[in-house]
């Protein structure tokens, strides 16, 4: 079992963002979480990545309780995420951004003397990840100078550079054009089976092209979970969520 969520609850004021959520995700499985806006998907991801602490319940990752672990611990036990709202280091170049991630998982950074420019290993690894996500040509541009879609790709490269065993992807295709999102789907398809992936996404075609299993979140509760095809066919799901889109 890669990820085990038990009886997770989180409320903000009177709103239940997570209501008794139970979920098991197997090693190397790609699991999609779908649901309407405001159903608590991002809150769930935030709890899984240690940014929000749940009111009650537990989260275990590979048998380790990470319910209350600070977010900086997650990267070191193999749990990486990309953000729904792009979060990169804008004044740094793309390769510097990815190097920042690679540096994090190659020992500590209390090294004061040796210039980072001499750490060719870090740079080479960063360039490899940039090539994987299709950003090799713009690796020297500052993050603030590239397009929104390219920054989304950068997010994924940074997450991959952490060498994760579980990748949390919060709407990786948000705000992307058709061609760009096609590229991301292709990239994620290539990663399938190599690591566990939890994918939050609105694009239903993308979700069901990638996911092995899926859960549907409505008002903070999981109303259906199982193999992706079954979840898609579930009449309750059709009515509650998918029906809205395919009506």
């Amino acid at each position: 079992m890669s990820l085990a969520i038990r009886n997770l609850n989180k409320s903000f004021g009177g709103i239940m963002a997570s209501s008794d959520v139970n979920l098991d995700i197997e090693e190397n499985e790609t699991h999609a979480i779908v649901g309407p806006n405001g159903s608590g998907k991002t809150t769930l991801i935030a709890q899984l990545s240690g940014i929000i602490v749940p009111d009650s319940g537990t989260i275990h990752f590979n048998g380790v309780d990470i319910t209350r672990a600070p977010s900086h611990r997650h990267a070191h036990i193999g749990l990486a995420r990309s953000f729904q709202i792009t979060s990169v280091i804008m004044p740094m170049t793309l390769v510097e951004n990815v190097m920042m991630a690679a540096q994090s998982v190659s020992g500590h950074s209390f090294r004061f003397w040796r210039p980072i420019s001499l750490e060719r290993d870090l740079r080479e690894r960063a360039m490899q990840y940039l090539e994987d996500v299709g950003l090799k040509d713009v690796s020297g541009s500052e993050a603030r100078a590239v397009s929104h879609g390219q920054r989304r790709q950068l997010e994924i490269a940074m997450a991959l550079a952490l060498n994760p065993r579980l990748l949390l992807l919060d709407e990786p295709m948000a705000g992307m054009g058709k061609r760009e999102s096609g590229r991301i789907v292709e990239l994620l398809a290539g990663l399938k089976g190599k690591m566990t992936m939890v994918l939050v996404e609105h694009d239903m075609d993308a979700v069901f092209a990638l996911a092995d299993t899926a859960s549907v979140l409505v008002d903070g509760s999981i109303i259906a979970t199982g193999p992706a095809a079954e979840v898609r066919a579930n009449p309750e799901v059709q009515r509650a969520y998918l029906g809205d889109l395919h009506a």
Binding site: S49, I51, P70, S71, H72, R73, H74, A75, H76, A80, R81, F83, S87, V88, I89, M90, P91, M92, M100, A101, S104, V105, S109, M158, L162
Partner: peptide, 15 residues
């Protein structure tokens, strides 16, 4: 990196 984006640095695994 922390000056520019501290939450991101945390999620990259930096204390």
């Amino acid at each position: 990196g922390i000056r520019h984006n501290e939450p991101r640095m945390q999620s990259l695994g930096y204390n």
